[in-house]
Each structure stands twice: as C-alpha cells, then as structure tokens.
Design a protein around this nucleic acid. Structure first.
Lengths: 235, 235
DNA sequence: TAGTTCTGAGAACACTGTTCAATTTTTGAA
DNA sequence: TTCAAAAATTGAACAGTGTTCTCAGAACTA
C-alpha cells in the first residue's frame, strides 16, 4: 500500500507526528481520568484539530484505546522482564517480579483496569473468534503468562516449588492471585490501609505479604494432589 | 416524611410496584448486557413509561445500578453464608465456600465486574469520604470479608492454618486471590480452557485447584514471618 | 367539592461516537 | 511553474446518551 519501507517521505513523517500527538494527548487524559474522561471532542480540542480528523488516524475510539492498552502491557511486560533478569537468589527475584507487576499495575490504574474490563459473551456482534492456546501465547498477556510459567518451572527445578504441581495450572493460579491483588488495590485502595490499628507502609507491606503467600502456596510438602484427578471435592 | 410505617396506603403499594418493575427490567437487561446495554430510554420503553418518569423513582442511573449491585452482593453473601453453615469437615467446607464465591460471581459476570469497576482517585467531584475500618465493616463487602476472617480464625484455632499469620492480612490475601480468579474467569473466560491439550471440566477443575492453592498458602510450616516486620525484602 | 400533592409525559439541553459531503492543502508530474 | 490528482481537514448532521424542565392530569386530603 505504502511506498518504500527504507525511505519515508516528509508526508509520512508529518502523518506520524500528528498520530503521535493524538496518542500522546490520549495517554495524558486517560492516565488521569480513564476512559470516562476521554472523549473524541476533548481530544480534538487538546491537539487543535477537528473531531472528525481523528478518524483518519484511528478507526474508532476503541481502536485508539486498544493502542494505549497495548503500550501499557508492553511496559508491564518489559518492567517485569527486567526485574526477572536481575541477579538475585531465586526466591527474592520471584518476589521482586510479583511486586513489580503490582507496582506497574497500580501506577496506571486506569490502564490496568481497562485491560480487564470487557465482559465477553454478550450476545451482541462483538463475538470474537475462539482463542486457542497458540493464539493466547502470541498475545501480550500470553507473554506475561509465559514469564510466570518459566518462574514456576525454575522453582520446581531448583526444589523451591512442589514438582508435582501442574506447571500451567500453578502459573495460572499465581496469575489469578496476583491479578486479584492488583484489582483490589486499584478499585478498593482503602483496603490496604484498612486495619483495626493503622500503620505506615501498610500498602507495600501487604503487597509483600501477599507475594509471600503466593510463593508459600507453591512450596513442596505435597499435601494436595495435582489436578489430574477430575472430581476431587476433597476428602 | 411519609406517614405511618405500619399501614401502607394503596398509593405507596402502587409506587412500590412500579419501582419494582423498573428494577426488574433493569435486572433483566443488566444481567444479559451489563451497563453498556442499559439505557434509561430502553428501560422506559420496556416498562411502557416515559424516560423522565424513572427519575421519580431513582435519582440517577448510577443510583439504580447501585441498587442492582447491592442486591447482587446480598445474594453473594447469603450463598456463601449458607455454604458456610453446612456440616462438613473444616477443609471441605472452606473449599466449598471459595467455590461458591466463584460460582455466584461467574453466574452474573456483569454484576460482579460492575461492583469492582470504579477507579477512585480521579480528581473530579466524586471524592468519596475516607473510609475507616468501621465504615468498611458495615459494607456488604465488609461483611463478605468478615466471613473470610472467621474462616481464617477457625482454621488457625483448629490447627489447619498457621497460627502465626496475621488474621486480617491473611484474610485479605485470600480475598485477593479469590477475587483474581473471579475476575480472570469473567474477563478472560478462555483462560480456564486454555491448555496445550484441552480437557473436559477444565473450568471447575481449575477453580478447585486454585482454591486448594489458597488453602495451601495458609498451612502451617511457618517459613515466613508475619508481616509485623516492616522492611522485609526477604533474605 | 375545592385545593394540594404527586405522577407521568414531552420537549429540550448538553453531551457522546461517528459519518459524509465539501473544502482546503499538499503532492507529483508535465 | 502550472495543473490535476490525492490526501488532509473541516463543519454540519445523525443517532444515541443521561438529565432537567415545564406542564397537564390523576389522586389523595380537607
């Protein structure tokens, strides 16, 4: 469609600049007020363009926001990945990764919340095609999940985690627990400070506590069997 | 403001009936399509009233939806409470409670999602007053939390859980993990079925697995110290 | 029955996302 | 440089949204 990939025309340069200014303004507004505060008209006003102009750069508002979410997830991924590469003992490194995930999520609460806001299954037209395992792995979320998967694998190999646990199930469980903490801190920020007797640093203390609980659940002492048994209503 | 509490006039009866039909219609629409599909005009059409009439019964759309959420949380609470009262061994009963929570949440995904959808801290006018511990305990969420608190206490007393864990922190951690699973199942329903090699009953199996992981994190073998130590970046 | 209160309807306001024809502005070649 | 084709930008308009207002009519109270 577009000419050569090596030489970019001034026109293309200009186009990319305008496009960039749109997402920059969108990012600015969205960070502060979320999707509720972000209207096309307001955006147009901020960058001194007409509302309809924006539709030459983005097909819809949703498409624009999807790009914000994508950028956020890339940020989340790289931050956790960077933490993962630090040279520390396994357990400390795992804790650091979990903390980093929470940090990035709560630094941009609107982004994180929006990334998990759609409820599929509405019998409207947005019936997305069924996701396969391969599809998921290609997603940013899939890549984030992959980090957890490797963490579990490493922990099992080094004897820190129960080797009888199913890797995939364990990683999903960790993700769920982590995701829950992020969500709760975002939507119910008072929770961390909510104590019969308040304390300083309550928030980061609780993040640490929860992260340790997650690791605890993975430790050896195989009291429960792996989920290979289907109808295990315990006992 | 209104006359006697013992005798209800026919007018009041009629008013309550109309009000009931509004929330019934709202419930019907909201269950299927969530807040996105629920508009005042559509609601008015469904009950054959004019849009402005609804404002004689509810101050705003948000107020109406708040009532739906409240009813849902009451349902959630009573279902978990009922499970809690069943006569089973402690561990099985705890697992059942956790499963029930997930069941109710995923049965009405829009309700559960909406209950945790607002992001406070927007520097707009909706600055809600700071919540205290006592305030929170009076909330439905606070009551749900109380169930978890008692569960933890009972587990510690009976030796199933680590007695050195701070009760409140542990209960919060359990809630976060549970909440995370609910959110993930709602917003990423494919996750449960996402496996390199698919299996039947994947969903309930995973719920069970995660619930067992939660209990596992609470077990004795006190490897970590309670969060009483403030700057514990491990090691 | 007269008067007051309450219920409901309809129009209107200020928004929203989105589209479309018309109008610039920029571009590439004769 | 000139001129047509292409791209960029706009303002008006459409179909929605939540909400408020005024006003007519029904239902209670005295």
């Amino acid at each position: 469609m577009i000419a050569g990939p090596s030489v970019i025309t001034p026109a293309e340069r200009r186009r990319m600049r305008v496009r960039g200014s749109i997402i920059a303004a969108a990012e600015r507004v969205f960070s502060r007020e979320g999707e509720a505060g972000l209207s096309i008209r307001r955006l147009a006003e901020e960058i001194d363009y007409s509302p309809s102009a924006i539709y030459k750069y983005f097909g819809s508002k949703e498409e624009l926001i999807d790009e914000l979410k994508e950028a956020f997830f890339e940020r989340l991924l790289s931050r956790v990945d960077r933490t993962q590469l630090e040279t520390m003992p396994f357990e400390a490194r795992s804790l650091a990764c979990l903390s980093t995930y929470i940090d990035v999520a709560t630094e941009r609460p609107h982004h994180y919340a929006a990334a998990f806001s759609s409820v599929p299954g509405d019998q409207s037209a947005n019936a997305k095609p069924i996701m396969t395992w391969a599809d998921f792995c290609a997603t940013r979320k899939g890549q984030a999940f992959d980090i957890l998967l490797k963490m579990v694998a490493e922990g099992q190999a080094s004897g820190h985690f129960d080797p009888d646990l199913d890797r995939v199930s364990a990683a999903r469980s960790v993700w769920a627990s982590l995701h829950g903490l992020a969500q709760l801190l975002i939507h119910l920020p008072s929770l961390a400070d909510l104590l019969p007797s308040p304390r300083t640093n309550a928030r980061s203390d609780f993040v640490n506590f929860h992260a340790q609980m997650i690791l605890r659940s993975l430790r050896p002492f195989p009291v429960i069997e792996t989920d290979r048994s289907s109808k295990s209503h315990v006992e």
